[in-house]
Each structure stands twice: as structure tokens, then as C-alpha cells.
Design a protein around this nucleic acid. Sequence first.
DNA 1: TATTGTTATACTCTATAACTATA
DNA 2: TATAGTTATAGAGTATAACAATA
Lengths: 159, 159
Amino acid sequence: MLDDRPTDFGWTVSIFADAFARWARTAVAPDLPGGPRGYLVLDAISRGQPPSQLALAQRLGVDRTAMTYLLDDLEAAKLVKRRPDPADRRARLVALTAKGERALTRAQKQIGATEQRLLSPLDESEASAFRCMLERVALAAHEAAPDVGAMAPATPRRT
Amino acid sequence: MLDDRPTDFGWTVSIFADAFARWARTAVAPDLPGGPRGYLVLDAISRGQPPSQLALAQRLGVDRTAMTYLLDDLEAAKLVKRRPDPADRRARLVALTAKGERALTRAQKQIGATEQRLLSPLDESEASAFRCMLERVALAAHEAAPDVGAMAPATPRRT
DNA sequence: TATTGTTATACTCTATAACTATA
DNA sequence: TATAGTTATAGAGTATAACAATA
């Protein structure tokens, strides 16, 4: 199964992402609802002002219906709380509880260790450059994402 | 939702991988069974000697049961053919048909364009370095993968 | 009329088990 | 007894639709 062609880029992306996802899933506390995705939600909430559910969904690139289920579980675990947005009564602002902040701190350590394990083939300066480039690529992709309908809302019916 | 912390690594990996997967899915010919994963199968087969189904499954990091379904679809589309391994009659060797080779060539162009689009924030030397580091990380992760049971076979029952 | 959040449904994946034929 | 491949089932995850409340 070896030949002269370079390893396929699609393969490297697939293996890389799968490995991180799988390792993160085993590393993260098993009682964290949603696993690594739950961690991403807690992390996103912890940055700045309490976001709306829709803002969270767009940040993570998931549908708002999935965000409802995820937040239901996180709230049931007392890691987050929802309250109505005073400025827009349709929206709900999501904030971390004290327990949620502790869970986030714990998960950050666990995910950080996973990251180090994944990047261990690179030396320190390489890992730094890699992280930087990955971030630039991810940010650009995130900006461009909406046009492919990834987080398209349910099609409004035509009454 | 902005603060002083650097962007989370888990977030960048998630967005990066999702963007590539989503873009690849729309780029690849819609009649290619399995989408981008079907492409990875064709690509793996095209490298060297016809592999067994198990070798393919391990290469792609999927379960052998999923590989059966995938190959069923690819064979129904006349892109691959299975034949018994003369050296081990339990195993089946998978090879590309002429149609499969053409489909692979087409998909390679489509995936290549997706890769270029994804890496467009990087200049040429950066992209080259990024690809190289990503490959090193992916290869190491692939070596280390089996220990987490990602492709664990069904547990043999204890009669 | 459009948007935020929720719920219900169907569909797709995946994990697991169990079976066969070989080794 | 172990392995390669297949099939069946159930569970998780996701997409879609529809709805209520608000803008």
C-alpha cells in the first residue's frame, strides 16, 4: 500500500481530526455532557459577555437545535444557567455556574494534555508555528462557512 | 465573546476539520458512494498492491463492518471489484476498475481544489510546511491509534 | 414578515453482537 | 482458538419541519 505519491492531504486531515476527537473524548471527564463539544461550549461561554444560544451555535458551527439539546444537558448538570436577554426577550443568555467554571478548568487541563500528546512529534517552535497556521486557516474557514449552509436554520415553510 | 486568551486549540481543530469535510463533501462528485470517505478508499487502493478489506479499514481508521458497507456501495457503482486472496481464502483483495480509476482522478482534482481553498490563508512556503507537519502528526497519531480501541473488532463472545 | 428557541420526526452513522468460512 | 468478512440490531448523532413567543 506504499507508492511514490505523497500521503494524501485528505487522509492526514481525517486521521488528525479523528485522533484528536477520540483522544479528547477519553481524556475529558466522562460526566461532562456532550464530551469535547460540551467543553467547547463552556470555553466559548467563558470568553467575554454571556452569549445567546444562537451565537454559541454559530461559534461552534452546529445547528441551533443541537445547541438546545446540548445546553439542556449542561444545565441539568448545573454547569450553565440560562436567563432571558433583557434586550431581546426572544433570546436567552447563557452563563457558567461556579461548578461550570470548575468543570471548564478541569477540562482545559485534560484537553491541553491531549493537544500536547497530539503535537508531540513537533518540537516547540514547530508546534507554535503549526498552531498559528492552523488558527489562521480555521478562522478563515469559519468566516467563509455560512455560505455552504452548514448552520442553515430550518427552511421556513411556505404557507 | 472575545477576550485575551488565545483561540482554543480544540476549537481550531474542530472548525478546520469540519470545514474540510463539508467542503470536500460538496466538491466531490455527488454519485461517489461514501463521499469523501469513498475517495479515501479509492486513493488507498490505488497505492501499491490490492489491499484486503481489513487493511483498508485500518488505514482509514474505521471499523471493518463499516468497510463492508462502503465497499458494497463502491462495488455496486462498479468502481472497485473484490476477489478472494489466493494466499488466504478468508480475505478478499480489493482493486480499482477502470471506472474507479477515472472516478479517483476526478475526485483527486476536486479534493485538491478544496485543499487549496482551505489553505489559501497561507503562502506557498507556509502551506508546504503546514502540510509536512500535519502529515508527521497524523502519521504518529495513526501509529498510536490502535491502543484506544478505535477500530476494535467486535468482542468475541465467551461461549 | 423575520428571528430565537423549542420540540418532534426521520434519517444517517456508528457500535456491538453474532454468525460463516477459513486458518 | 483466532481471524476476515458479513449481517442484524440498537443507539447516538444529525437534519428537517413545525411551532410559540417576540421583534
